Simulated scan of single mutants.
Amino acid sequence: MTVQLKPLSEQVMVITGASSGIGLATARAAAKRGAKLVLAARSDAVLEAVAAEISAAGGEALAVHCDVGQRDEVRAVAEGAFRRFGRIDTWVNNAGVGIWGRVEEISDADMRQLFETNFWGQVHGALAAIPYLEEQGGALINIGSMASDQAVPLQGVYSASKHAVRGFTDALRMELESRGAPISVTLIKPGSIGTPMPQHIKNYTPNEAKFPPPVYAPEEVAAAILHAAEHPVRDLYVGSSSRSISLFGRVAPRLMDWFGETLLYKAQLGPRPPSPGDNLFHGQAEAKVRGDHGGSLIRPSLYTRARLHPGVTAAVLAGLVLAGASRFGRSRRS
Rank of each mutant, 00 (worst) to 15 (best):
L226P: 02
L47G: 05
I193W: 00
D89N: 05
A315H: 10
L263P: 08
A315F: 09
G167W: 01
G21H: 03
T117W: 02
P276M: 00
A78K: 03
L140A: 00
A147N: 02
D72S: 14
L176A: 06
G80N: 12
A223N: 10
P274A: 10
G324R: 03
V14M: 03
G277E: 11
V12C: 08
L154T: 07
S55W: 09
G270Q: 02
F259G: 08
G319L: 02
I106Q: 12
V12A: 07
W258M: 14
T169N: 05
R33C: 05
T2M: 14
A51C: 09
G17V: 01
R179S: 05
A25F: 07
L5H: 05
N93C: 14
V165C: 00
D108I: 11
G58D: 09
V251W: 10
Y132M: 09
V14N: 00
L172R: 03
K288D: 09
G137S: 03
E219C: 03
S334M: 12
V64R: 09
A81G: 08
S43Y: 05
M146Y: 08
S326C: 14
T117M: 02
R234A: 11
H124T: 06
P300N: 14
A160D: 05
G324K: 04
A57N: 10
T169F: 04
A57H: 09
Q122C: 10
T90I: 09
H309W: 09
D67R: 07
Q11Y: 00
R102Y: 09
H227P: 08
W100P: 05
G329W: 11
Y132D: 00
L140D: 01
V157K: 01
A61V: 10
S275G: 13
E73M: 15
V185I: 01
V68R: 01
S244I: 14
S326Y: 12
L320P: 08
L127F: 12
T90V: 14
G17K: 04
K288V: 11
E177H: 12
